[in-house]
């Protein structure tokens, strides 16, 4: 290759605003952010509920949630693939090889991270707040949003970790998305593809772009969180 420097390649990709690259980047962000949003909408209240309520099998639920944080993306991908495949139980939805399938797979990966952290953080906070909230007349159910809101800075960290996992994984989206050009090709699958073509500088250049994007999202969230934390104590 004439241009063998991955950093030059990354710069060229970013500055050139290549149409295809913009499409891939946008889809990556859309898929991962949607997955994180969905996982947060489910995981935060469910984690908080597990923290506040005592029920049979609770210890098992907590253990499973913690264990699922280490779920290999390929396994999540395979599970979603079998679920959404035409031969699978949800085959009639026709979602395999669509961005929606990728969102579902990534949600599965991110949900345990957010739910487990939410469980931990809310449980600690509940310890501190329980008497006061009960005294003020908040039921356990009503305490859930209150505790989540008060724990928002700690939870933001978990949500960002979830975003990191979603945007970095390739195993799940490759299986359920199929890496279809212009339809389900995202940053990580594009990197895998370029690597297998032996196009290492381009692959690494794309990797740098991905890193940059994730860093941007994290920095934005961090700055907003820090600012608010300073203001709200």
């Amino acid at each position: 290759m004439v241009d063998g420097n991955p950093f030059a390649k990354a710069l060229e990709l970013i500055l050139g605003l290549d149409q295809v690259l913009v499409g891939i980047v946008t889809l990556s962000l859309q898929v991962s952010l949607t997955a994180v949003l969905t996982a947060a909408l489910l995981g935060l209240p469910i984690g908080a509920a597990v923290a506040l309520y005592r029920f049979p099998g609770r210890a098992l639920v907590v253990t499973v949630l913690n264990a699922l944080m280490g779920l290999p993306p390929v396994v999540a991908g395979l599970a979603v693939y079998l679920l959404l495949s035409r031969a699978g139980p949800l085959g009639s939805w026709g979602l395999l090889f669509t961005p929606t399938a990728m969102v579902i797979a990534q949600t599965m990966l991110v949900f345990p991270i957010i739910a487990a952290l939410s469980r931990q953080v809310v449980e600690d906070l509940w310890e501190e707040y329980r008497e006061q909230l009960q005294s003020l007349g908040a039921s356990r159910l009503r305490a859930i949003p209150t505790l989540l809101w008060d724990a928002r800075f700690s939870l933001l960290t978990g949500v960002l970790a979830g975003f990191g996992r979603a945007s970095a994984e390739v195993g799940a989206v490759l299986i359920v998305g199929g890496n279809i050009d212009g339809v389900t090709r995202v940053m990580t699958t594009a990197i895998a593809l370029e690597t297998s073509k032996g196009n290492l500088p381009l692959a690494l250049g794309l990797g740098i772009v991905l890193l940059f994007l994730v860093a941007m999202v994290n920095a934005t969230a961090f700055l907003i969180g820090e600012g608010a934390k300073r203001r709200l104590g």
Binding site: Q30, V31, L33, T34, L37, G94, T98, P99, T100, V183
Partner: peptide, 12 residues
């Protein structure tokens, strides 16, 4: 911004 991005995930 996030929700907008999320909702515009290309449907089939």
């Amino acid at each position: 911004v996030i929700i907008t991005l999320a909702l515009t995930v290309p449907a089939q």
